[in-house]
């Protein structure tokens, strides 16, 4: 059987890992200790980064890819997949993460964009990518570039779920429109959305995005996480919401359970008891547009 030809880094293999994460929670961690707490709580993956979004927001400055030493430390600490962020359009940061054998790269608006016009051509990489989106057009542009997974952008580091809800509602309503359109209308819709035509055709056939779609940006409580699942997300990223709260281990575990059992309100009530204070947060409605990061990337 030595003639068997193995292919690595294919789209099926990249998308396949995202499929395995469904129904799970991916947690932002800044140290190997936090990564272990996340794994122990039942996270399906961790996102290794230097500062969680709420600190990036508070401290300002340029946010870049994390120190490779820190990322390697986290990779050694856990057996679940490790993700890390590269700046939008920063091909070399992404290559560095790939060289570290990272399991998933997040081309993320949470970091300061390196290129205002171009996103990374993700199909050229062997490592899979996840990208943020606010609507179907943006999601399909990223898939067109090779993203194997999409997440809502939400408004990271705020603890306010309203933007994540807005984005998944928008994606859902765009999908509904594509599904109910006649084949003849699809090119006009593709033009309007700014999305590759072939992918719009795929969305109509599938009735959903061609890749896994997670929620991200502002999720702070088990109920927030379950809400995103009810709205049709395949899983949830929690950034600042866990390690900026009173009792990270307990909250992390509660969010994992709320996502796995999102339709079971009794259970969510039970796991939500006595979690201590959630991250304090910041209401998006009271923010200036220039403070928002979801507008980064297109």
């Amino acid at each position: 059987m030595s003639e068997v030809k193995k292919e690595t880094g294919t789209f099926a293999v990249k998308k396949g890992l995202a499929e395995m994460l469904k129904g799970g929670v991916i947690m932002d961690v800044v140290t190997p200790e936090q990564a272990k707490i996340a794994e122990e709580a039942g996270a399906v993956a961790v996102m290794a980064l230097e500062r969680v979004p709420s600190d990036i927001r508070a401290q300002g400055g340029v946010a870049r890819m994390s120190d490779p030493e820190m990322i390697s430390g986290i990779q050694q600490a856990v057996s679940i997949p490790v993700m890390a962020k590269a700046r939008i359009g920063h091909i070399v940061e992404a290559r560095v993460l790939e060289a570290l054998e990272i399991d998933f790269i997040d081309e993320s608006e949470v970091l300061t964009p390196a290129d205002e016009a171009h996103h990374i051509l993700k199909s050229e990489f062997k490592a899979p990518f996840v990208c943020g989106a606010r609507n179907l057009g943006e999601a399909l542009r990223r898939v067109g570039e090779g993203a194997a997974m999409i997440r809502t952008k939400g408004e990271a580091g705020t603890g306010d779920v309203v933007e994540a809800v807005r984005h998944i509602r928008q994606v859902n309503s765009d999908i509904q429109r594509v599904v109910s359109a006649s084949p003849m209308e699809l090119m006009a819709i593709a033009k309007e959305l700014g999305a590759p035509y072939e992918l719009v055709v795929q969305v109509k056939a599938l009735g959903r995005l061609p890749v896994v779609n997670f929620a991200a940006g502002g999720i702070a409580t088990p109920a927030d996480a379950a809400l995103m699942m009810v709205l049709g997300c395949d899983g949830v990223f929690v950034g600042s919401g866990i390690f900026k709260s009173d009792n990270p281990a307990k909250r992390a575990k509660a969010i994992v359970e709320a996502v796995a059992h999102y339709a079971d309100a009794k259970l969510i009530a039970e796991v939500s008891k006595g979690l201590g204070e959630a991250m304090r947060g910041q209401s998006v409605a009271q923010m200036e547009d220039r403070e928002k990061i979801a507008g980064r990337g297109w």
């Binding site: 059987m1 068997v4 030809k5 193995k6 292919e7 690595t8 880094g9 294919t10 099926a12 293999v13 396949g16 890992l17 990779q75 997949p81 790939e98 054998e101 990272i102 399991d103 998933f104 062997k126 490592a127 899979p128």
Partner: peptide, 24 residues
């Protein structure tokens, strides 16, 4: 190994008969 080592390949599985199975 890690995700970069994930792969797909056609493998013959006699119990299923017919053509090789596409394994991911």
């Amino acid at each position: 190994g890690r995700q970069l080592a994930s792969f797909e390949a056609d493998m013959p599985i006699p119990a299923l008969g017919g053509k090789p199975f596409h394994t991911i």
